[in-house]
C-alpha cells in the first residue's frame, strides 16, 4: 500500500511539476491574473465602494455572494457538529460520580452516583479528569479576555481600512470565549454563552448577511446590491456600499464567533456539555 501510494504520489507530483513549465513566472506583473480582472478592482474599488482595503471590497461587495455562502459553510459546519455529536438523553449524560471543590479550603468532595450534591455556593463542580486549581492562569485570563474581545471588535470594525474583517474578528472573539472555557471550565463558559445563544446567534449572523441582501432585493435592486440601501442609510450610493459592507461584516463576525464557540462546546465535551478540556 505504501509503495503504491508513494509511486502514485511521485507520478502525480512529477506531472504537476512538469506542468509548471507553462506557468507565468512567479511575481510576473504581466501575467494574466495580474492584468485581466484584478486591475479593475485595484483602480476602481475606492471610487466604486469607498473602501480602501481592496480585499474587503472584493470580499464583501464584488464577490459578496461567495462570502455569503462561505459564512453559510461555517454555519453548516457548526450545525453538523451539533447534529452529529450532541447527546440529548439524560441517562446517557450522567457520569458515574461527581466531584466538587470546596473553594475556601481547596478540599475535593467525591459524590457517588445517587448522592446529594452540596448546595452551598462555596462548592464548585469540577471535572474528574483535570482538577488543579490554577489561580494564576484563571486570573490572567480574566484580565486579558476583555482586551482580546475589544481587539476582536476593532478588527471587525476596522476591516475597511486595515487587514481584518468579520472572519478574523469573529475568530478572535470566539477564541476569547474558548480561552475562558479552557482556563475555567466548560460549564462556566456555557453559563456565559449558552447553547441556545450560540445556535441562534450563529444563524442570526448569516441571516443578517442574507437579510441585507434580500433587503436590497426588496428595494428593487439585485440581491446584495448595497447601493439600493442608500435611502435607508441616508447617504449616497457609494457610501451606502461601504456601510452595507460594514453590516455584513458584523453579521459574519457574529456568525463566526458563535460557530467557533459552538463547535468547541460540542467537540470538547463529545456532545455532553458537562465537562470538557
Amino acid at each position: 500500500m505504501k509503495i503504491v501510494a508513494l509511486a502514485s504520489v511521485l507520478l502525480c507530483g512529477g506531472i504537476l511539476i512538469f506542468g509548471t513549465a507553462g506557468f507565468p513566472d512567479f511575481g510576473d506583473p504581466l501575467s494574466p491574473p495580474a492584468s485581466h480582472v484584478s486591475p479593475h478592482y485595484i483602480e476602481e474599488a475606492v471610487a466604486e465602494t469607498s473602501v480602501p482595503n481592496i480585499v474587503t471590497a472584493v470580499l464583501a461587495d464584488y464577490r459578496g455572494f461567495d462570502t455569503l455562502f462561505e459564512t453559510a459553510v461555517v454555519f453548516s459546519a457548526a450545525m453538523a457538529c451539533f447534529f452529529l455529536l450532541r447527546v440529548f438523553r439524560e441517562d446517557e449524560r450522567s457520569p458515574s460520580e461527581k466531584l466538587y471543590r470546596h473553594l475556601p479550603t481547596g478540599i475535593i468532595l467525591r459524590i457517588d452516583p445517587g448522592g446529594k450534591a452540596p448546595q452551598s455556593n462555596e462548592f464548585e463542580p469540577i471535572d474528574p479528569t483535570w482538577v488543579p486549581h490554577d489561580m494564576i492562569v484563571k486570573t490572567t485570563t480574566r484580565l486579558i479576555i476583555p482586551f482580546i474581545q475589544l481587539f476582536g471588535l476593532y478588527v471587525i470594525a476596522h476591516g475597511h481600512h486595515s487587514p481584518g474583517g468579520g472572519f478574523q474578528g469573529g475568530v478572535i472573539l470566539g477564541s476569547s470565549l474558548i480561552l475562558y472555557a479552557l482556563s475555567q471550565n466548560l460549564r462556566m463558559a456555557i453559563g456565559r454563552m449558552g447553547e441556545t445563544v450560540s445556535a441562534v446567534f450563529c444563524a442570526a449572523g448569516v441571516f443578517i448577511y442574507a437579510g441585507a441582501g434580500a433587503l436590497c432585493l426588496l428595494m428593487g435592486a439585485n440581491f446584495l446590491d448595497y447601493a439600493a440601501l442608500s435611502p435607508l442609510f441616508g447617504v449616497d450610493a457609494i457610501q451606502a456600499r461601504s456601510l452595507g459592507i460594514l453590516v455584513v461584516e458584523i453579521g459574519v463576525g457574529l456568525a463566526v464567533m458563535s460557530a467557533m464557540v459552538w463547535i468547541y462546546y460540542n467537540l470538547a465535551s463529545v456532545g455532553r456539555h458537562q465537562e470538557g478540556l
Binding site: P33, A34, S35, S38, I42, E43, V55, V58, L59, D66
Partner: peptide, 15 residues
C-alpha cells in the same frame, strides 16, 4: 487614482 502595478492582486487573497 491607484495604479494596478503598485498593489498585488487582491482576488486570490479573497478566494
Amino acid at each position: 487614482s491607484a495604479r494596478a502595478v503598485d498593489y498585488i492582486n487582491p482576488l486570490p487573497h479573497v478566494l
